[in-house]
Design a protein around this nucleic acid. Structure first.
Lengths: 140, 140
DNA sequence: GACGGCATTAGACTAAGTATCAGTTAATAA
DNA sequence: TTATTAACTGATACTTAGTCTAATGCCGTC
């Protein structure tokens, strides 16, 4: 997530730079916690108490479309958003829900057979699940 | 998904073998299409027209708990269920939503660093996304 | 065949997200 | 600086997917 670059993309598309859009972008800037939409709404409200959830959802959708953020669904709650658009995997703690980034790249030569049999591969998502150090410490 | 084994697990847990539970199990038996809960409801209704969605959701939950099926969330719609409990990856067509199984096992020596730094790894999920041969044929 | 208790049903409820539209505002130009 | 206008926002109703609850039903055992 790069605010100036996102602004440039908005302008390039003939779209306006509104205070709400700026607020969402600033909330996401540098955030590595993979926030859910509701968390973004909450934080935008510190600046704009009456912002509508619909607006935040719309802006998130726009940022996804311009590839400034990546939507993530871990299958255990609402959609979350990743501000790191580089290829990497995720480490999800099953206890507290915390998500960490992991340096990880699928080796091209390890791609399975069907991918070479007519299926056009676009991407891969890798989730590791387990228990984070904090939760291990707490529960034994 | 193995119906006799699931029945044995129900009995072992002091739970009853009801016609609805049998119907859900038979619907899932041998199904490789990774159906959504709604699809299971629909098919169970061919036999029990008045079955409640709550019942089907509950039975699916039970089967997940006894590890006879695996819940899958591809992030583009409702939760789906996999009757193949062996380790494998999934190939998701972004166009038609079709899901294929892929023989795939993460090489243990390829595990990223953080997993050896206090994170207790339990499992990994790998999704490949792309365009299936049928959809490539249709859209060029 | 009767009984006890687990299971089922219907329907209200919740969470997360989407659609619509009247009113507002950012960006451009005069 | 003001006028113009297309784009944007907020309120609200709606949708989808799934959960909860209370009353009723029925499986399994005796």
């Amino acid at each position: 997530m790069d605010v100036p670059r996102a602004i440039a993309k908005y302008r390039a598309g003939g779209q306006k730079i509104t205070p709400q859009r700026l607020a969402v972008m600033r909330v996401l800037e540098g955030d590595r916690s993979h926030p859910a939409a509701a968390a973004v709404v909450e934080r935008v409200r510190r600046e704009f108490p009456f912002v509508s959830p619909a607006t935040v959802y719309r802006v998130l959708e726009e940022l996804v479309a311009m590839e400034e953020i990546v939507p993530l669904d871990f299958g255990n709650g609402p959609m979350r958003f990743d501000t790191n658009t580089a290829e990497h995997a995720h480490l999800v703690c099953e206890v507290c829900g915390r998500v960490d980034d992991v340096e990880w790249r699928l080796a091209a030569d390890a791609l399975p057979e069907p991918l070479r049999q007519g299926y056009a591969l676009k991407g891969a998502r890798v989730f590791f699940s387990g228990c984070c150090p904090d939760c291990r410490g707490r529960s034994g």
